[in-house]
Nucleic acid binder design. Structure first.
Lengths: 206, 206
DNA sequence: TTGCGTTCGTTAGAAGTTATAACTCAACAC
DNA sequence: GTGTTGAGTTATAACTTCTAACGAACGCAA
């Protein structure tokens, strides 16, 4: 699953170690957030001491950038897979895929859509992946009702409304407010513009 | 503005220093984000060396907690002021107040609604301020059209949709996408449920 | 098998950070 | 004047990221 057909044994070992570093990094991020990621802790977990990690990654920022890229890539993949499989173009399917992906690893979601680090700028190839994320959504929005300027509006509303809901839910801002995020999610999904109540989205088989 | 009628000169001095610490902390947060806040840097800026700050605040976390509380308080104040002044109950006024408050200091917005630190739990009095934030919104939502279960839905949609829009805008996720956040904001505000298109919100004088 | 070069992992150290301990000294109360 | 309180100082510990230099192991080739 990890070591593809790389040539030399050294390169295979190297790829394996790099993969294990990212794995430990994901564990750390999932439990304590991205700001608490420590290269020293990863090295200690892997049984080697501090500076050895710098043979495998240039530094903390470079590692985080790699994880950010991985997160974007993961979301793009699930979006494309959702759009491809199933009954073709279904906005609800994309929505539930997004929600599932977010709930699966909240810190990974925040790595993509969370608070940005002021100095940090995403590498160029990430912008390519973002468009890769948007295309399935735009395709669905342009396909279903009359395509036109409504499509972009619909896609943007999908994005902003669902992100607002998800980020507040994942941040725990609904706790103690007697609101079911899943129900709210379904209601918001049902209320996306343009409001064609006569043509509701097909009930999800779930 | 800062030192109220505290008694002794010592207490006045103490309050003054504490206020200056928070001020410098806000400057640091505005420019480099909350994760880059350094007590040492603040002390150096104030012309005193490192550990002296610990006379005035228990530690980095305690200082950040104080800033979080201050941010919540600020938002609650602007919301209440907006609800009080103006032409009474106006959802658009609250929305523009929220957007203005967010654009005024994005890092302050992220301090309240940004990525949560997994281990961190807000102090008890903050939950009181959050309800203080929600009450003007709930009042407006209950007052305008028929009050009922629609009011909570309306308030929640206001909150989640506008937060989704604002957080994506502040995080820079719209850059290069040829979308005007202000226009999008207005459109989303106009599309809040229940959709009474015959009774649009009064055009903002602004 | 015998080299030889690449690369891995180590320790040492620099420059940061938060935070504590101990000490000096000034300000204030009496 | 004396005594107490508190502010600010240095020194230190325990972290962090990251660089430099060194030894040792490994892979490859003759």
């Amino acid at each position: 699953m990890v070591d593809t057909g790389t040539r030399t044994p050294r390169e295979r070992y190297r790829a394996h170690v790099r993969a294990e570093i990212r794995e430990r990094a994901w564990e750390q991020i999932a439990t304590a957030g991205a700001s608490a990621l420590s290269l020293n802790a990863i090295a200690k977990q892997m049984g080697m001491s501090g500076p050895a990690l710098y043979r495998y990654c240039a530094g903390r920022d470079e590692l985080i950038t790699e994880l950010v890229r991985e997160a974007y890539r993961s979301l793009a993949d699930t979006f494309r897979a959702t759009a491809a499989s199933g009954s073709g173009a279904d906005l609800a399917a994309l929505a539930h895929a997004l929600r599932g992906w977010a709930l699966d690893d909240p810190q990974r979601y925040f790595l993509v859509y969370g608070t940005p680090v002021p100095g940090y700028h995403a590498p160029d190839d990430v912008t390519g992946i973002t468009s890769e994320i948007m295309t399935p959504l735009l395709d669905v929005c342009a396909a279903s009702p009359p395509d036109g300027p409504e499509a972009l509006r619909r896609a943007l509303s999908f994005w902003t409304r669902l992100h607002g809901l998800l980020s507040l839910e994942l941040a725990g801002h609904f706790t103690g407010m007697d609101v079911d995020p899943a129900l709210m999610f379904a209601a918001e999904l049902d209320d996306l513009p343009p409001h064609r109540r006569d043509r509701r989205p097909a009930p999800r088989a779930q």
